[in-house]
Structure formats: C-alpha cells, structure tokens
Computed example of a mutant assay.
Amino acid sequence: MAFENDTSASAADEATEWLIRVRENPENDEVRDAFNAWIFASAENRREWEKTCQAWRAVGVARTSRSRVASGQRGRTNSHGAKSKIATAFATAGLALCLIAFAGPSMLIRMQADYQTGTGQTRSVDLADGSRVILGPDSALLLAFSDSRRGVVLLKGQAFFDIARDENKPFEVDGGGLTIAVLGTGFDLDLGENRSVVALAHGSIEASSLSGQRVLAPGDVLTLDRHTGGISEAKVDVADIGAWREGRLAVVNQPIGAVIAEIQRYHPAWISVPDQSLADQKVTGIYDLKAPDEALGALVDPYGGKVRKISAYLRIVSRF
C-alpha cells in the first residue's frame, strides 16, 4: 500500500511539472511528444493530470473570493504584504495554467489532438487497423497506437467508434475519467461538462473508472458523474445510439442543461441558461440537430421555457 501511495505522489508531482512545461513551451514538438508519452504511460498519470488541472482551477476561484474580503481590509495592515503578493502571483499563474486544460478550444488540446472538429462539423477518421471513428462537432481525438497497443484518447466532445476486431491486440479508448477496453464493437462516447456517457450499439465493452468496472451489452448506457464519481446505468433503443450522426439527438432522462450543452456543439451562438431550476429539469425525447434553434424550443417549451434571440451570437433560455 505504501508503494501505491508513493507512486500516486510521484505522478501528482509529475503532473504539476508537465502543466508548467506545456505552458512554457506551447509550440514545442519535443515537449508535446514527451508529454504524450508520459500521459499514456499509465491510467494513474491521466487521473493525476485531471486532478492537477482541477486543483489549479479551484485555486483561481478561491483567489477571486478572497480578493473581495481583502479589498475591505486594505490599508489596515501590511504585515503579510510580501507573502500575499507571492500567493496572488502563484494563484494567478495557476489559474492561467489551468485554462490550458479547460478553455476550449484550449492550447493543450490543440497541441495534443491529431484530429479536431469545429461547431456543427463532423469528421470520419479511418485508423490504420481498419477501425473507424466519427467525430462529433467541437470534438478532439488523439491517437495512441504502438507496436503493442491500439488506442485513442477522446480529449473533448463526442465520437462514435466502430472498432475492427483483433483478439491479440485489444483496443482501448480513454476519455473523461473512463477507460473502455474492446475487441471489436461499436459504441458512442460523449464527454459533457460534468459527465461522461458511453452507450453500446453492438458487441461488448468493459468500461472502468475509479468507481469500478462494468461490462456493457448492446443498448446499455453508462453515465459517470465526474464530480462525485457516481455511476448510473440505463437501457435505450440501439437505433438511437449515435443518432447524432444522422442529425438526431436522442435523450433519455437527462437534465435540460446537459441537453443544451449537446445542442451547443451545433449552434454558432452562445447559449445561456440562467434559470437553474429549468436546467435541472429531466427530459426524454428526440431533437433535430439540423435546426438547433427549433430543437431548443422543442426542448424547453413543455416546461414553460422560452428561447430569446438576443443577437446572432447569443441565446438566453429561461422561464422568465
């Protein structure tokens, strides 16, 4: 057990060092290649990388809150002035570094991705082993092939995977806290803001996270809450899995806010949902992604919601 803790501590330190190196060398191919080698070396490295970015982001949020309090005390004491300046600089640097991982499309994703799509775009990627990946809008994919390994990382967005069978070399997909091991199968992986969803169309897959492992059968949908680590499972019609490839968004018992995040990938305007109670409302339905404004209306109208077009670049969705 002590050995495992030491390994985790080492990975955490390395993740922090890589965050700094990537920030300082955004266009350096050698840094990119070395970072990719490190992050693919183990699932522990990938977990510590996500935790490190989340921690930096939290430092920035905490600093914003503290600054309001500090402003009211300014002039009373300067006893900790030097330390405060150092802490502020440290937090500011941390927040800037974290933006590499969270801003989209981020510098980090641009450095890592082998394939990307923009708003409303899809892309078919044929892999060297005969597998095919269809990238959804606003998505990014990184290849991780070697002589002994077949694999990819979904860095952001959504993709449908049709994996060629090779019993001697299983295929592995990483993304959003999930690792999916397959032989030959078809499945959809969707990385939302706070959740990761995998749905199996045909074949069999094993999905694993820090919460454990699950083996999925066709029609199974597994959702990972990345904040709590909680896992939920559901059943859907196989025909609805990956329906976005045909311009349809099939939703089963999902919050309106999460569905709007899906539609956002197809909409050129920024969509704001200030009404949290509306965003939390669970819905089930099928929506037309070829007409995102109409899809928004169909989504929220039954619950008293309205879509207000403020400009070509902004939509506000609320009950008021």
Rank of each mutant, 00 (worst) to 15 (best):
A291P: 00
W49G: 03
T64F: 09
M1E: 06
N28C: 14
A9C: 05
Q264E: 07
A279R: 11
V125Q: 04
F3R: 12
G72A: 04
Y266D: 08
W270S: 15
A207Y: 07
R21K: 03
Y115K: 00
F145T: 10
L135P: 07
M1P: 10
A58E: 15
E24P: 02
V238G: 06
Y313D: 15
G177N: 13
S209R: 06
R315E: 00
V307L: 00
G60H: 09
A37P: 08
G297C: 11
G75K: 08
S148D: 06
L108I: 10
A140W: 00
A243Q: 02
S318A: 05
I260M: 03
G75L: 02
N36P: 00
K85G: 14
K169Y: 06
Q112D: 03
R123I: 00
V125P: 02
Y313F: 15
P274C: 05
P292N: 06
E14N: 12
K156E: 05
I310N: 07
D188S: 10
K306I: 14
Q54D: 14
F3K: 10
K235S: 11
T119H: 06
E172N: 12
K51E: 05
I260C: 00
E233A: 14
N194W: 15
R68L: 04
I134R: 08
G242Q: 10
H227C: 12
I231P: 06
V22N: 06
L108Q: 07
V300A: 06
D240Y: 05
D288W: 08
G192H: 08
V59T: 11
S277I: 10
